[in-house]
Write a protein that binds this DNA or RNA. Structure first.
Length: 645
RNA sequence: GCCGAUGUAGCUCAGUUGGUCAGAGCAGCUGAUUUGUAAUCAGCAGGCCGGGGGUUCGAAUCCCUCCAUCGGCUCCA
């Protein structure tokens, strides 16, 4: 007998070799039906794997990650089995579970596969589900594993196995399908009730573009059809918030093939929105002691040779601009920092002058790969809410912390609750990718870690994600369909001050090197607005909305009164339009609701005679009547509340 | 850049196997209506069917190529 300890501390005895499924059944049949995986002494196992020693366990149902991952992992195998049957001779890469669903990377050889094949694969998967194939685990030696896949002729699995330690290798089988896999998996294929293959895409083997590109099929599965339906509806809903769609509907921005791909054109409403965000940040930064500067869009090539950007990105950038003068070359600026370094240098600096905080909404141009461009989130010309802080070593942490404060304040004001903070450090195994001394890197990384600890900020740490000149703290937010985008960024840089030979005179009357902090709380105006659109679905907070109110006369007879109301409100600095089209009120309401204007003010006979407006709030309907002045005061109070939040 | 898909009026989309297939709704313009909380009615105008080649008696439709967009991969100073 062995002792099994449950999460609540209860201990019960079972026969040696008992499985998770048997334990669940012992508790209740219902639990046995719902349980999907089990944690045994901290490791997630298959429900059918025998437990041979005393153990602490926890059974996992669908609502837990451990269950979902087993479920989706088995779904990936299910798909792979179907693919092997339908396309004999294909070679399998990897097929993991992911945050939402699963994928499998497959080398289809000579088959040409497209979305049109997905339904066929789905039907075959359904057959396998109905066949209720048992999923079994087998431990194999490395030699045995290698032999199996060498014989099968699957170079990808052979490569994977070569990197594994002997004694840790397992195969999972179902029907005639066997896969190298760590597991865990579901007991049999019939567990996978409802699934859909979502998309097909190329993916380089092991994520390296020098390797062969395999075909990746993404899918999702659920234990109930209703869950799948809900998920698909949710995806559809999310697509409605896509900033590219909303941006077009609300006339915020556009692109022109003639101007060039990845070069956004801000339409009047979008420009207003962006300007408001910029002014907001300028006000905040002023409080924090920043000074605005302005620099040109180009700079001599030599500037970027000095900064190191040319060596790193020169070949893959917009190429230099030549002038009639022999040998003269300018680059579109990909960064503002070199220009700012030159501003720093324009006069001698004393330790008493530091920190110098230089801010600029600087437009930069980067030649992003064409396949990378994506609405406003990834573009070739964009404006950073950039600033560079030049400080003494003893000021570094405090300055860093203050920048975190700005970022958090902005996120709070804009109601971004779900963001993640990521510390990006360099990859210690690949130091050639970076410039600067080990000592400086260590100091910089330490400064970030300490600042984050001081703020008690929840962070993740990624090795190898640092910029080539320094480590950074990034703030990431998800878009409507769950893709992560980096917004705010704070970077410590010991490198540029050295390259530009920046100095200050210390209290000791000696020359010292300042440290630079690069920071952009929004990241770029383009990307920030994109994410803001997706979070709000275009229903911007009152203080940001391009138009805050629209007056809707019931008929043309009341256009004069409507005009009077609109003028009054505009005098109160409330951005007010009139919809005096010759249309019925229902139509005007509908159209202006679709434009996401926060307040609709309806005026007709009743209002005109009593000097009132009927207030209708976006999405919430009729709010009753009030005096125009009363409405104006209410709106202004709301706006004030929002910005001071 | 790579893999796959898509590209028809400002927008959203129809156009069966190549042969009145250049269409609809919305938006726009004109007129009628003068309207009470999410679409009033009628008329008009609007497209080199992404660009360029080709196959064919004939191409929005088939083929090639380029461009752009979308989903991923890679990249992201």
């Amino acid at each position: 007998m062995i002792k099994i300890t449950f999460p609540d501390g209860n201990v019960r005895e079972f026969a040696k070799g008992v499985t998770g499924l048997e334990i669940a059944k012992n508790i209740s049949d219902r639990l046995a039906k719902e349980v999907l995986s089990i944690t045994v002494n901290g490791e997630v196992w298959d429900l059918t794997r025998s437990i041979n020693t005393n153990a602490s366990i926890k059974l996992h149902k669908w609502d837990e990650e451990e269950a979902k991952h087993a479920y989706w992992h088995s779904s990936a195998h299910l798909m792979a089995e179907a693919v092997e049957i339908l396309y004999p001779g294909v070679k399998l890469g990897i097929g993991p579970s992911i945050e939402n669903g699963f994928y499998y990377d497959i080398d289809f050889g000579d088959y040409s596969v497209s979305d049109a094949d997905l339904p066929k694969i789905e039907s075959k998967m359904m057959e396998i589900v109905k066949a209720k194939e048992e999923i079994t685990r087998k431990e194999v030696s490395k030699a045995e594993a290698l032999a199996t896949y060498t014989k099968k002729g699957d170079p990808y699995k052979v490569e994977l196995i070569s990197d594994l330690e002997d004694g840790t290798i397992t195969f999972y089988s179902q029907g005639n399908f066997t896969d190298l896999c760590r597991g865990p998996h579901l007991p049999d294929t019939s567990y996978i009730k409802s699934f859909k293959l979502l998309s097909i895409a190329g993916a380089y083997w092991r994520g390296n573009e020098k390797n062969k590109q395999l075909t990746r099929i993404y899918g999702i599965s659920f234990p109930k059809k209703t869950l799948l339906d809900e998920y698909l509806v949710m995806l559809e809903e999310a697509k409605k918030r896509d900033h590219r769609k909303v941006g077009k509907e609300l006339e915020l921005f556009t692109f022109s093939q003639k101007v060039g791909q990845g070069l956004p054109l801000w339409l009047p409403k979008g420009a207003q929105l962006r300007e408001r965000l910029e002014n907001f940040l300028k006000r905040v930064q002023k409080k924090y002691g920043y000074e605005q500067v302005i620099t040109p869009h180009i700079g001599q090539k030599e500037l970027y040779v000095t900064s190191g950007h040319y060596a790193k990105y020169g070949k893959d950038s917009f190429q230099p601009i030549h002038t009639p003068a022999e040998g003269e070359e300018f680059l579109l600026k990909p960064m503002n920092c070199p220009h700012h370094c030159e501003i720093y240098k324009h006069k001698p600096r004393s330790y008493k002058d530091l920190p110098v905080r230089m801010a600029e909404f600087g437009t930069v141009y980067r030649y992003e790969q064409s396949g990378e461009l994506h609405g406003l989130t990834r573009v070739r010309g964009f404006t950073q809410d950039d600033a560079h802080i030049f400080c003494r070593p003893d000021q570094l942490k405090e300055e860093f912390v203050k920048v975190i404060d700005i970022v958090l304040y902005i996120f709070k004001t804009l109601d971004f609750k779900e963001f993640t903070a990521q510390i990006s450090l360099r990859d210690p195994n690949d130091k050639d990718k970076y410039i600067g001394s080990d000592e400086n890197w260590e100091k910089a990384e330490q400064a970030i870690i300490e600042a984050v600890q001081e703020k008690g900020l929840q962070t993740t740490t990624e090795l190898g994600e640092a910029a080539f000149y320094g480590p950074k703290l990034d703030f990431m937010v998800k878009d409507a369909i769950g893709r992560k985008w980096q917004l705010g960024t704070i970077q410590v840089d010991y490198n540029l001050p050295e390259r530009f030979d920046l100095e200050y005179i210390g209290a000791d009357d000696k020359r010292h090197r300042p440290i630079m902090i690069h920071r952009a709380p929004f990241g770029s105006m383009e990307r920030f607005v994109a994410v803001l659109i997706e979070h709000s679905g275009g229903r911007f907070p009152l203080w940001l909305a391009p138009d805050q109110a629209v007056v809707l006369p019931i008929s043309e007879k009341f256009n004069d009164y409507a005009k009077k109301v609109a003028d009054l409100l505009n005098n109160y600095d409330i951005r007010t339009l009139i919809d005096d089209r010759n249309e019925k009120i229902g139509k005007k309401i509908r159209d202006n609701e679709l434009k996401r204007i926060p307040y609709l003010l309806i005026v007709g006979e009743k209002e005109a005679t009593s000097d009132m407006v009927s207030v209708r709030m976006q999405g919430e309907g009729d709010k009753g009547q009030m005096k125009p002045e009363e409405f104006a005061n209410y709106i202004n109070a709301e706006v004030k509340k929002q910005i001071e939040a």
